[in-house]
Design a protein around this nucleic acid. Structure first.
Length: 780
DNA sequence: CAGTGAGCGAGCTTCCGCTTGACTT
């Protein structure tokens, strides 16, 4: 029996630490928090100084009872949860739940999982810091009060099952407000002048700093340049340098994996978890950019051996984010000597990114020589400018270049090019000069990762919650990650070549988006409601304000119950008065009159989502009157839809022809446009406009769908044609009517399935509880 | 999933932050 029981939060960590300590230590994991507030209303007794009622959730019962047993047998119990607010609370919950005794319980902390750090921690045990625990309780209680009082207000005033909270509601607000900025953005056009001098490899570009908003001015500039002399007026070279970025934190890893590998934030975390469990990287939920001494030494050795002495540069990074608690190291490879690892492609790619970033962070800066050449024009006062950049020493760029969100811009401007050797006064030969109309761009929509970055800047959320928060706002239907097609836009190009100016009009695609977050109508309506009635909670600084108070509690400067009282009293009053006085939020917007009938058109959110209505609601003196309704399509919003677009919606559903004696109808469903035919449905491909579907196209699509379905079919049954065995994306499965049934692992060959077997499986599946809670049956 | 948007009004939903699997049609 081990004399010592040491408890950490993560099982992978436990395994590592067990290796560092002798056989006198048994190292176990609590798997995070072991207790939480009960789900019911009485979790917090506000009248009784916010007294909390905790419970061990079902999935933690087994862990707790095992730890309890081990703790009883151990001589000393070491509580080694993380050194931050949550970690301290985990230690306290363990102490309380496992019935530990003060005399043989020791609290230790370390910021890195290295042998010296663990041994040092064991030499310096302390007691549980109850101020820190209180700060966590305040945090936990505040979040519960906000979430569980605000959400029901939304159920009453907007729609059931919605949610609100300190973190998610601000995330939604950020997305909604950005969308509105984009919608009201007025793009301004201006002509940009670019000249190309020299030929072949000696060719280079020069630009005019000024942009002309008027075509006449741009044209005049080009006209002036016809037959003009161009000379190098001045040459300036200066050294420039670039430093590597700090090693990854959770948020920067999510950003880079999104930009460089195209991963969603949750994908990144899943893959990182695997790397962590495999022992390849350090802990992936961290806000620290710090590297342990052991790691620094290993990185140094690796850089020197792989690239040489001059590539190494010792660097210490400081965290920038205000709320950082730095209980861990930065994300880094466990062994710097492993440039690559074994694993599937997502793991190897993410590992490589982490390795490069961490290694680069300890490498020397890259050195450049920048050249700025001013070029005079004999016929004008203004100069053209050419920028050149030559790398003198690659430094950290040998392994890693951080990307940024505006990378496209840089490429477009053609910066960082090399200039041919030039001398002062040198005459230059103009090849071509263009004046191209360019448009100012609206602020960028958020990606999942850039939203995380924004939240981190505001100090909202924690490394462990960034990915779940991003999922929540999408699962609630507040935001949607989408591709949107751009619009064609004309732009003008004037080209000076020889003695003539060519005027041209070209077309570019603009506004196309991939994987960006768009607010939904319900997101916008909920946001506006919260901003109107709970300004304080959705304020961008709310978290920062309460964090400051949590810090004071942690330092013992403030009573946590006092802080909560001060917050809760006015908040609860707001909740009450909002429930009593606020109108239901429907987001209603009048679009104007129908061009023919003159009836009123309006948009709003209904039970089934946003819709357009023609005509007024039925009134008492006109009971038979029924307005017409149509749902908005995906990508349309009640905020921006025009009268014309709204009218278009009433052109569907539409009969497009007949096939096999049955009509074919085009309509728009929840998942987009589709053709219905004899109770079968075929989705319409994106390229086909639902309004333009021809009879031939419809027939073709129906036949193609039948063909595809037939290919999927493995086995059919005479007893009941709705029972089928099909080949799906993840292997074979049974389809029974609309029910999809998984085939158990012990059936290796789905062809052997009998009808009776399938029926039994389907019945069992229908009874089995579904993941994600039981959906309540809809009443008729 | 495939055409709805009233009002009867039961019973359901919901937070943030620690963790890891179970699960996917």
């Amino acid at each position: 029996m081990a004399k010592n029981l040491l408890i950490v939060e993560s099982p992978a960590k436990a395994k590592t630490i067990e290796g560092y300590l002798g056989k006198d230590f048994m190292v176990k994991s609590s798997y995070g928090h072991i207790r939480d507030l009960v789900k019911s209303e009485d979790a917090i007794d506000v009248a009784n100084n916010f007294k909390q009622t905790y419970e061990v959730p079902a999935d933690k019962k087994q862990i707790v009872s095992e730890l309890k047993k081990l703790a009883k047998e151990a001589e000393t119990v070491w509580l080694a949860s993380d050194e931050d607010r949550e970690g301290e609370a985990i230690s306290w919950h363990l102490f309380d739940t496992l019935n530990l005794k003060e005399a043989n319980t020791k609290r230790i902390v370390f910021h890195e999982i290295t042998k010296p750090a663990i041994l040092a921690a064991i030499e310096n045990p302390r007691k549980i810091d109850y101020n820190l625990v209180n700060a966590q309780q305040a945090r936990r209680v505040l979040d519960r009060l906000v979430g569980f009082e605000l959400s029901p207000v939304l159920w009453k005033k907007v729609k059931p099952s919605l949610s609100a909270g300190r973190v998610q509601s601000v995330a939604v607000r950020i997305v909604v407000e950005r969308e509105r900025e984009i919608n009201k953005f007025q793009s301004e056009a201006a002509f940009k002048i670019v000249a190309i001098f020299g030929k072949g490899k000696q060719a280079f570009k020069a630009e005019l700093a000024e942009r002309y908003s008027q075509q006449e001015d741009a044209e005049k500039f080009l006209t002036d340049c016809i037959g003009a002399d161009f000379n190098v007026k001045s040459l300036e070279t200066k050294p420039a340098k670039r430093s590597p970025a700090a090693p990854f934190t959770t948020s920067t890893l999510q950003q880079e994996a999104s930009r460089k590998l195209g991963y969603s934030v949750s994908r990144t975390m899943q893959v990182a978890q695997k790397l962590y469990e495999g022992g390849h990287i350090t802990y992936m939920r961290t806000d620290s950019v710090n590297l342990s001494e052991t790691a620094l030494a290993a990185a140094t050795a690796e850089i020197i051996s792989a690239y040489g002495d001059k590539y190494h540069q010792y660097r210490k990074y400081k965290t920038k984010s205000a709320g950082a608690q730095e209980a861990h190291e930065a994300i880094r490879p466990t062994y710097f000597s492993n440039h690559k690892i074994e694993g599937d492609s997502s793991e190897t790619r993410l590992y490589e990114l982490i390795w490069k970033r961490a290694i680069a962070s300890q490498m020397s800066e890259a050195q450049f020589e920048k050249t700025i050449a001013k070029i005079s024009i004999s016929t004008r006062k203004d100069d053209l400018t050419a920028n050149g950049e030559v790398m003198k020493f690659d430094g950290f760029l040998k392994v890693y270049l951080e990307s940024n969100d505006e990378e496209d811009d840089l490429q477009q401007d053609g910066d960082n090019t090399m200039l041919p050797p030039l001398t002062n006064g040198q005459a230059l030969e103009l090849q071509e000069m263009t004046a191209t109309e360019r448009f100012s761009r609206p602020p960028a929509r958020y990606t999942e990762a850039s939203l995380v970055k924004k939240l981190e800047e505001l100090g909202i959320g924690r490394p462990s919650t960034y990915a779940p928060t991003i999922s929540t706002i999408q699962n609630r239907g507040y935001a949607i990650k989408e591709e949107r097609e751009g619009k064609q836009r004309k732009f003008r190009v004037l080209t000076l070549k020889g003695d003539g100016i060519l005027k041209d009009e070209r077309i570019e695609n603009t506004g196309a988006e991939r994987g960006k977050l768009f607010p939904t109508d319900i997101g916008a309506v909920v946001n506006d409601f919260l901003v109107q009635h709970f300004q304080g909670i959705v304020d961008f600084n709310f978290t920062a304000k309460v964090e400051k108070q949590f810090d004071e509690i942690a330092q013992g400067l403030e009573e946590w119950t006092t802080m909560l009282h001060n917050f809760y009293t006015p908040f609860h009053a707001d909740v009450q008065s909002t429930i009593e006085t606020a109108d239901k939020a429907t987001g209603i917007r009048e679009l104007g009159a129908h061009p023919e009938s003159g009836e009123k058109l309006s948009v709003r959110i209904g039970r089934y989502g946003p819709f357009v209505q023609i005509g007024e609601n039925a009134s008492d003196d006109n009971k038979d009157y029924k307005p017409q309704y149509a749902s908005l399509r995906t990508g349309q919003s009640i905020e921006t839809i025009s009268l014309e677009e709204a009218l278009e919606l009433f052109k569907l559903p539409k009969v497009v022809g007949e096939f096999e004696g049955k009509v074919m109808k085009v309509a728009i469903g929840r998942f987009g446009p589709y053709i219905s035919h004899n109770s079968a449905f075929v989705s319409l491909p994106k390229e086909i406009d639902p309004l333009d579907v021809t009879e031939e196209q419809a027939v073709e699509l129906i036949l193609a769908k039948r063909q595809k379905d037939a290919e999927k079919l493995i086995k059919a049954f005479d007893e009941d044609p709705t029972m089928k065995v099909l080949n799906g994306r993840w292997g074979p499965y049974i389809e029974f009517g609309k029910q999809n049934v998984k085939i158990p692992k012990d059936i290796t060959d789905p062809l052997t399935l009998t009808f009776e077997q399938c029926k039994t499986l389907a019945a069992a599946d229908a009874k089995a509880p579904k993941k994600g809670g039981k959906k309540f049956a809809k009443k008729k």
